[in-house]
Simulated assay, not measured.
Amino acid sequence: MRAPSADNAIADLGGETMGTTWRVRLSASRTRPLRPLHDGIQARLDAVVAQMSPWEPDSDISRYNRAPADTWHALPPAFLIVLQAALEIATISDGAFDPTLGPLVDLWGFGPDGAHPRVPGPAALDAVRPHCGWRRLELDASGTRLRQPGGLRLDLSAIAKGFGVDVVTAYLCAAGIDGALVEVGGELRGLGRRPDGERWRVLVEPIADADEAPCVLPLDGCAVATSGDGWHRFEHDGRRYSHSIDSRSGAPVADAAAAVTVVAGDAMRADAWSTALTVLGPEAGFALAARRELAVRFAQRGSDGPVYRATPAFERLVAE
């Protein structure tokens, strides 16, 4: 890593993507034009959307989802990178992360075809669940084509934002940027150092209305993502429904943690693991995270206030 330049200053860039916003804080020469960097970032995020957004009818993922049964589809290299990571985490988590839950996401009102959040009846769930299942995903021998077995609908929303962060980080590196903090919809990755040589530091989002000391994470070449029922939820008949669908029940996670924060080497995996561990829950999820030496913190609402539980890897990061 090159030493920060005294000529550098922090600059802020931002825009919109994937139904949310992006922001980059970067260390750059005071004389460097920023518009080309902004446009380059936006173009790369637009390319991710064009491949992986189910909200875009002409995206690669939408065309695959509409395709007839028993057809094979060539996928762009970036799409394959995300799909392979999704299958890796689906395998390790035994399906807690499942990239084929598009029909269930829509049924509960969280997806592009969902009018609004709602609680479907048992018959509707029974009709949709056979169209899901990550084990139905089949790549050909070359690993470049994906088979549509019939009615399967991919949804990469729980991993694509993180991948977008990684794409932007790689672009900035190639553009000669030595330090940046990249954020897309709450998923973050740190690159290099600030102009003063200090590491980028971020606050781990607290439980809403909790009176607590902030948890600060240094992002020194790593990424952080958070999932839980603090985002995209609704209430019905006094029960809280999170946006994270449990493939085992076909329903949103019951009693989901308020927040599951994951730190990883790349934002794509941090993003996906935060969803997988939310689905697994504070006991099974924490046990898996500890076994795999993942840096994870579970935040739950207790009767006497917030309850936090962090893996040793997460505690070491906070202590730095």
Results as ranks from 00 to 15, higher is better:
residue 46 D to T: 12
residue 46 D to P: 10
residue 46 D to E: 12
residue 48 V to P: 07
residue 48 V to H: 01
residue 48 V to W: 07
residue 49 V to L: 14
residue 50 A to C: 10
residue 50 A to T: 09
residue 50 A to F: 03
residue 51 Q to Y: 05
residue 52 M to A: 06
residue 53 S to R: 11
residue 53 S to A: 15
residue 54 P to H: 08
residue 54 P to E: 10
residue 54 P to Y: 01
residue 54 P to G: 02
residue 54 P to D: 06
residue 54 P to R: 10
residue 55 W to P: 00
residue 55 W to Y: 15
residue 55 W to N: 13
residue 56 E to H: 14
residue 57 P to E: 13
residue 57 P to W: 12
residue 58 D to R: 12
residue 59 S to N: 10
residue 59 S to D: 07
residue 59 S to Q: 04
residue 61 I to D: 03
residue 61 I to P: 00
residue 61 I to T: 03
residue 62 S to I: 07
residue 62 S to K: 05
residue 63 R to N: 12
residue 63 R to E: 04
residue 63 R to P: 05
residue 64 Y to E: 03
residue 66 R to I: 01
residue 67 A to P: 00
residue 67 A to M: 00
residue 69 A to R: 12
residue 69 A to H: 08
residue 69 A to G: 13
residue 69 A to Q: 06
residue 70 D to R: 14
residue 71 T to K: 00
residue 71 T to L: 02
residue 71 T to A: 04
residue 72 W to C: 13
residue 73 H to K: 03
residue 73 H to V: 02
residue 74 A to D: 15
residue 74 A to W: 07
residue 75 L to C: 14
residue 75 L to P: 12
residue 76 P to Y: 03
residue 76 P to W: 04
residue 76 P to H: 02
residue 77 P to G: 04
residue 77 P to V: 00
residue 77 P to Q: 09
residue 77 P to D: 08
residue 77 P to A: 09
residue 78 A to P: 02
residue 78 A to T: 07
residue 78 A to M: 07
residue 78 A to N: 03
residue 79 F to I: 04
residue 79 F to A: 08
residue 80 L to C: 00
residue 80 L to V: 01
residue 81 I to D: 15
residue 81 I to R: 15
residue 81 I to H: 12
residue 82 V to Y: 01
residue 83 L to G: 02
residue 83 L to W: 09
residue 83 L to F: 10
residue 83 L to I: 08
residue 84 Q to I: 03
residue 84 Q to L: 09
residue 85 A to E: 14
residue 87 L to W: 09
residue 87 L to Q: 13
residue 87 L to I: 05
residue 88 E to I: 00
residue 88 E to R: 13
residue 89 I to Y: 10
residue 89 I to M: 11
residue 89 I to H: 07
residue 90 A to S: 15
residue 91 T to P: 08
residue 91 T to C: 08
residue 92 I to H: 10
residue 93 S to V: 09
residue 93 S to H: 08
residue 93 S to E: 11
residue 94 D to M: 09
residue 95 G to N: 06
residue 96 A to L: 07
residue 96 A to N: 01
residue 97 F to R: 11
residue 97 F to D: 13
residue 98 D to A: 10
residue 98 D to F: 10
residue 98 D to I: 10
residue 99 P to A: 04
residue 99 P to C: 08
residue 99 P to T: 02
residue 99 P to I: 02
residue 100 T to G: 01
residue 100 T to I: 04
residue 100 T to H: 00
residue 100 T to Y: 02
residue 100 T to K: 02
residue 101 L to W: 05
residue 102 G to E: 11
residue 102 G to Y: 12
residue 102 G to Q: 15
residue 103 P to G: 03
residue 103 P to R: 01
residue 104 L to T: 02
residue 104 L to C: 11
residue 105 V to H: 06
residue 105 V to C: 13
residue 106 D to A: 00
residue 106 D to Y: 06
residue 107 L to H: 06
residue 108 W to H: 09
residue 109 G to K: 05
residue 110 F to I: 03
residue 111 G to T: 08
residue 112 P to S: 15
residue 112 P to W: 00
residue 112 P to Y: 01
residue 112 P to N: 13
residue 113 D to R: 15
residue 113 D to T: 11
residue 114 G to A: 08
residue 114 G to P: 04
residue 115 A to P: 10
residue 115 A to Q: 14
residue 118 R to V: 08
residue 118 R to G: 11
residue 118 R to I: 08
residue 118 R to Q: 10
residue 120 P to S: 00
residue 120 P to G: 04
residue 120 P to K: 02
residue 121 G to T: 07
residue 121 G to H: 06
residue 122 P to H: 06
residue 122 P to R: 09
residue 122 P to S: 03
